[in-house]
C-alpha cells in the first residue's frame, strides 16, 4: 500500500506503524461520572468496520507525524490522508 503523505508525498506503508481506529483520538474525560465505562469502551471495544474506515498511522521511519488515513478494509483502497493534528483540531481539540 502507498500512503500519500500530505507533507512528504507518496510513501510505502512499510514506513508506518499502525495504531488503529481514528476514534482513538477522542480520549474520554477522566473526570466524568462514567469514566470507567467510557475508558473500557475506548481501550477495548472496536467498531471493526468492513468498508471505509478512518485510522491512525504513525510515520515512524519518516517525519514521525501521526496521520488519519481513510482506507477501505475490503479493498485496501485509500481515499484520503490528513495530518491527525488537523483532524483533532477540527473535532474541537485544543493543542
Amino acid at each position: 500500500m502507498i500512503i500519500d503523505h500530505p507533507l512528504l508525498g507518496p510513501r510505502d506503508a512499510a514506513e508506518f506503524v499502525y495504531k488503529g481506529d481514528a476514534a482513538l483520538i477522542d480520549r474520554p474525560d477522566w473526570q466524568a461520572e462514567d469514566a470507567a465505562d467510557k475508558f473500557h469502551e475506548y481501550m477495548y471495544l472496536r467498531d471493526n468496520v468492513a468498508g471505509e474506515m478512518a485510522e491512525l498511522w504513525y510515520h515512524e521511519h519518516g517525519d514521525r507525524s501521526w496521520l488519519v488515513v481513510t482506507r477501505n478494509t475490503l479493498t485496501h483502497k485509500i481515499t484520503s490522508v490528513e495530518l491527525a493534528r488537523d483532524v483533532a483540531r477540527r473535532r474541537g481539540r485544543g493543542k
Partner: peptide
C-alpha cells in the same frame, strides 16, 4: 500484516 482488513490477501512487506 498489522492493519485492519477483511480482504483475504496481504501485502509484500
Amino acid at each position: 500484516d498489522g492493519y485492519n482488513t477483511y480482504a483475504q490477501r496481504g501485502n509484500l512487506p
